[in-house]
Design a protein around this nucleic acid. Structure first.
Lengths: 272, 272
DNA sequence: ACAGCGCATTAACATAAGTTAGAGATTGGG
DNA sequence: CCCAATCTCTAACTTATGTTAATGCGCTGT
């Protein structure tokens, strides 16, 4: 696969991208944008393979990825590793809910990458402005949504389904930040990386990709990938278009009412 | 397995338990305890199998589990399901980081269960008192830690290792809230539930348990389980005693320094 | 005591996925 | 431009795990 070579863009373009990708989920005020621009002048670049944040390290500044891809991962005994998820341009990373601020998995550059720091000081984040705060929360929620999907893939799907499901997720997420080309996108990952994300051996990942090509579900040209039949893919992999885009009106789902007592007594319920 | 039959305890005992389990990770002030006690008079009971919170439902009040076990899970097509994790007595559940407050997996009572509501109104939580706020955060971080471990189990461990790893996790977590009996504990889960958590078939879960018994790693008497050789188990499953207990001093790990520029220029880094 | 049910257990068999090994491709550096 | 490194791809074989189906055990309610 091709190295992903970041173009030499003007810092202003990066800041515009940061604002645009943060505001895709909700409106930012003039003030928010100003405050963002103030912080966004520290731009960091990372070579492929570099560890941006080490597992067990105390969290520094939260960041937003501007260019390239990164991995949330953990190295395991015996040279193995598990990839938890992918950080794509526009994604926020480096936040930890722990009181000691220690991050629970390392962040590694899957390609050469560019990031910049966000104007939040770790946990002090919660004292920040409303809109920005909300958006960062939203990003965190997405990350958790992806992690849940990852568990489903690994726990209850075949190699075939896992691959399709992941490719659909990546396409949907890239599309949001304008990094797709119709049904195609640049997938800068080696089969080894895919394997470590999908819990498969490299050989089987290769077999799986071959089969998907034979079935005319995908095409690859170098590291450019095209989803030839997204509908069928989604059906096979039971892919539910991420419960985020487009901002749906809050689903009016049922809430179960337990038996309660507000008088310090315990009551029982009829069986479900 | 036996139904877990909650004893008829006085509500005061429940409140004490709630305070005790919330304070296990950090001190609570007199005020905090008072504020907790005010909220803790609404006690809910749920029969086994009942859905406490449905996936896609808007989040209500966050809760703390007082008795019994619950599951974070998702139902899939074809009668399958994936269990994301277990909610044990003393655990907090029902929080959502999403702006629409929709929860991303359903919470189901694995046994008859008792819970009560916490004195936080969803996201308004962040305006709450310091100590309580911190503790709830801590709980959320643990949940994420467990989810990451779950991904590693499913992605990179054999059935054998997965089972050991999960049993060790459950023992460690139960121990924290005084629900263990030395190396033993009450495991109120059918093999089907274990299967859906570990991503295995019921038959293979059974085979795996048989083998662990034959290897003298565990003993079972009904639904009581004893870890006969926790050290060997931990070695085999590569179990890292959860990065939470006991509250370690923040690890002084290395933080990578990227190449930066604060002058609106982009710089590059030497290769890693 | 008995019937019925859910759950644990086994066996026999099918198959998806892992392992090892090696031969082509690409890519990037000197 | 060529060499070295890294990927991709195949093949042959092993193994872990899934599937189906049947038996048995231990509750629970009548």
């Amino acid at each position: 696969m091709n190295r992903y070579r970041p173009e030499r863009l003007d810092a202003r373009v990066y800041r515009d991208f940061a604002v645009k990708s943060l505001s895709r989920l909700g409106p930012l005020s003039e003030e928010d944008v100003t405050s963002l621009f103030q912080a966004l002048n520290v731009i960091e670049t990372w070579p492929q393979g570099q560890e941006l944040i080490g597992e067990g390290a105390a969290q520094g500044q939260p960041r937003i990825l501007l260019e390239g891809w990164a991995l949330r991962q953990r190295d395991l005994a015996g040279g193995r590793r598990q990839i938890f998820g992918f950080i794509l341009p526009g994604d926020v990373f480096g936040l930890s809910a722990r009181p000691d601020r220690i991050v629970m998995c390392s962040i590694v550059a899957a390609t050469a990458a560019t990031s910049c720091q966000l104007p939040f000081l770790g946990r002090a984040m919660r004292e920040e402005t409303g809109a920005l705060h909300e958006l960062v929360w939203h990003m965190i929620a997405r990350e958790e949504a992806c992690l849940l999907d990852q568990v489903v893939r690994l726990g209850r799907q075949s190699a075939h389904e896992r691959m399709l499901h992941l490719l659909l997720e990546l396409h949907a997420r890239l599309k949001e930040v304008g990094k797709t080309d119709g049904a195609g996108f640049h997938l800068p990952l080696s089969q080894e990386v895919l394997s470590d994300a999908l819990g498969l051996s490299v050989v089987h990942t290769n077999r799986t990709l071959q089969q998907l090509r034979r079935e005319h579900l995908i095409q690859t040209h170098g590291s450019h990938l095209i989803l030839s039949d997204p509908e069928r893919m989604a059906e096979i992999a039971r892919y539910r278009p991420s419960r985020f885009e487009p901002p749906q009106p809050a689903a009016q789902a049922s809430v179960n009412v337990p038996s309660c007592s507000s008088t310090d007594t315990v009551t029982s319920n009829p069986s479900a």
